[in-house]
Write a protein that binds this DNA or RNA. Structure first.
Lengths: 229, 229
DNA sequence: CACATCAACTCCTCAGACAACCTGAGGAGT
DNA sequence: ACTCCTCAGGTTGTCTGAGGAGTTGATGTG
């Protein structure tokens, strides 16, 4: 009975964690049939229902798959990539840098592919950013992100759009911290307005070079400020 | 007892599915406390343990979170985005396009940040690509991806590295299809060797402009070929 | 009004029982 | 030699009953 403690808090989660470790650790590669529930129960020192729930949790995460009468089988060795969590863990600078990479190029594409509807959405988002100038930091950041999202959307690449969406939560918090830290809105309630207007115009005019240059300047500046801290 | 049949196959999965429908369908928004286990058991017409396992499966998928004594709460309305699956579903062209965006910029960064170890890894990967010229398509594509991965790694941004890793599976299959479809290796067993060598040299020399230009040419060419089909 | 107490409710864990099902071995038939 | 059948053992699926532990909101007290 090679185990210790296994006492505090939900036993199910501890059991699931231990099983998952065995899987992600490579002890049980894909295709392996896990020991039976009663065996696992004895090994882990918990009841069979507890083991069952732990296995069910792993099944829900897509790691294992039970087959009645046959056993429980490993079908994946990694819990479905939890990108939002990973981004939350990552350094703000790294996230921002990748975001900059993607968006600079997206702007270029957007200038080529934008439809009239896109342009309308961009102008609306720009207006929204101006309106949000009078609101709190969070609201302003949201409006800013909405504008950038509109640029990305104008590139008409679903993968790109999804990618940007994935970045939004991490970006949002990072930007709120940044704006308040640097007191960006102390002097100017809507910092970078001229630049964002120029960006929208460039995309509308189909001038991808200018659009991406504007964004690059914007991001380089922010990244520089981030690096100073 | 508003239910029908609910007999064949695992009751747990059916119960979980029904609960998930309630959540994704908007009936139970984020923050909602689900009915108690006994209530759900009666409503679904199954035993309590079955309900518990169904809830545990949803918890494993990140949809709900149980709190002892308080209840089970909805914490998300969508099963954690399965990016690999999404990429598999997406059009090859879209995936490739985003990959190009990211990598062109990554090359520029890599030229600035690469260490001597990175350069060694790059040269080794280039050599591996040449060696794989005599092998099958899959092996060649793997070697090609390894080289590009080395470029991305040289940028020293963990978020970027993770992102590229996420793209690899979709990329791999797409590239294999592409190479065989276009018969790229019919005339030249290691297409683009000169260009890749120049890329490695540019990164080694710290010439980011050249590095990213080379990659851009490469990708534009491939994207052009993809567009023709 | 602030605070302590308490009861009802919730999830957590276990044990036991039976049903449904899969797998592999061995025998019967072709 | 091959196929098919049967069967036993093991495995997951499901239910029930019983406590344990924690949270929450109402109640009562000062």
């Amino acid at each position: 009975m090679p185990l210790e403690a296994l006492r505090p808090s939900p036993l199910v989660e501890q059991a699931a964690q231990r099983l998952q470790d065995q899987i992600t650790g490579g002890d049980w590669p894909v295709g392996t049939r896990l020991p039976g529930e009663t065996t696992l129960a004895k090994t882990l020192g918990v009841g069979r229902s507890t083991v069952r729930e732990a296995l069910r949790a792993l099944a829900g995460a897509g790691l294992v798959q039970p087959r009645q009468g046959a056993g429980v089988f490993v079908i994946a060795t990694e819990p479905t990539e939890d990108w939002p969590a990973r981004l939350r863990r990552a350094a703000v600078g790294d996230v921002y840098e990748v975001r900059a990479m993607v968006e600079v190029q997206a702007a270029q594409l957007a200038a080529v592919r934008r439809t009239d509807d896109d342009v309308a959405a961009l102008r609306a988002a720009l207006e929204g950013r101006r309106t949000a100038a009078g609101s709190g930091t969070a609201a302003f950041v949201d409006a800013d992100i909405a504008l950038h999202a509109a640029v990305v959307a104008a590139a008409h690449n679903p993968v790109l759009t999804d990618l940007f969406t994935e970045f939004v939560p991490a970006l949002r918090q990072g930007l709120i911290d940044l704006v308040e830290l640097l007191d960006l809105r102390g002097r100017d309630p809507q910092p970078g307005d001229a630049r964002h207007a120029a960006l929208v115009d460039a995309v509308a005019d189909g001038d991808g070079t200018t659009a991406s240059r504007i964004l690059r300047e914007e991001f380089d500046e922010t990244l520089g400020q981030l690096a100073e801290r």
